[in-house]
Design a protein around this nucleic acid. Structure first.
Lengths: 171, 171
DNA sequence: GCCCATTGTATGCGGGCGCATATAACGCGT
DNA sequence: ACGCGTTATATGCGCCCGCATACAATGGGC
């Protein structure tokens, strides 16, 4: 969001970090827009469903996961009610099953269906190709590694510092 | 969106660009969430209103801009109907005026109000501080410049390559 | 064994978004 | 001056989101 007041030439105190953030925002929005379009048009999946399937595909054992675990992975992209309805739609589309957890009567266990696996496998190819085409293609591998290192360092630093309400349930 | 299948250790063919994209997505979502929260809580502005005000504040002459010009700046974050309603809300909140363009009967000219300027000035401080606190603080200035250069190169490359439907009005 | 605070999930509600479409003004060709 | 394709904006509609809240199950304290 919001790329206001870019330091074009001889502006203000010149803030390298702020400029970096603005460039990051611009790239993210531009690339994501095209990638999401590719997912929807070529794979028939919206980005939320795709993300959920991606996490489920990695889940052990075999595509099973608690709804609450998935929520932690998808937060803050989805709120708890938002995820609740997302998986309802996914169940309606036959991509996942929702079963009562035998160990905890409150919990719901998600189970990827075979159809879900197939849809995800196809979509993953679309996604990967789209990211390469719209992003990776323009970034030399060496710079990509540098970029990743810098960004991962930020993630680690943020995880460490006591950022408020990193916990899903707060207040 | 979607950070599936991260190359943790000895995974697949190892794709530096894809990993970079995933890190970018993770940082963007995490940081943006907190920045938007700060804007809403401390400045009482949602991110769309803030972005629009930021562009208007830079407009010459003095906070005037055509709706269609603003649309190009906000695209693809907002669609044309989305922006239409966004500025309607902004007008209702007294942040901008909407006047018929004397030179073109179809067009609407936006004019930032004094209240809009005040609200934006306050929000801009909140925004800048939040970005520094959640992002810039964790990124050395040298790395920030490297980051910006790599990302801006991607933006330029994307603008050059004939990416389909970069124009607002397509199809 | 009974409370009761906590945890896991679902739902009522209001609001914002995008798509398709409508409406109105423009301007060029004739 | 008329027609018609184009451009600028607005609106009907359906969908999805988050917030607040409801509800059910859990487990530790006593």
């Amino acid at each position: 969001m919001a790329e206001p007041v870019r330091n074009g030439a001889g502006d203000e105190p010149l803030d390298a970090q702020l400029d970096g953030w603005r460039s990051l925002v611009a790239v993210y929005q531009s690339v994501l827009h095209d990638v999401v379009r590719a997912l929807e048009n070529d794979a028939g999946l919206d980005s939320g469903v795709f993300s959920a399937l991606a996490y489920l595909a990695r889940a052990e054992p075999r595509g099973r996961m608690r709804l609450s675990e998935l929520l932690e992975l998808m937060y803050p992209r989805y709120s708890q009610p938002g995820l609740s309805r997302l998986v309802q739609r996914m169940e309606a589309d036959g991509l996942v099953g929702r079963h009562a957890d035998p160990d905890d009567g409150r919990a719901t266990v998600l189970q990827m269906t075979r159809a879900g696996r197939v849809r995800f496998a196809r979509a993953d190819v679309i996604y990967t190709d789209a990211v390469r085409d719209h992003f990776g293609r323009h970034l030399p591998a060496a710079e990509a590694r540098t970029l990743r290192n810098a960004l991962d360092a930020i993630l680690r630093a943020r995880a460490t510092s006591v950022s408020p309400s990193r916990t899903v349930r707060a207040r």
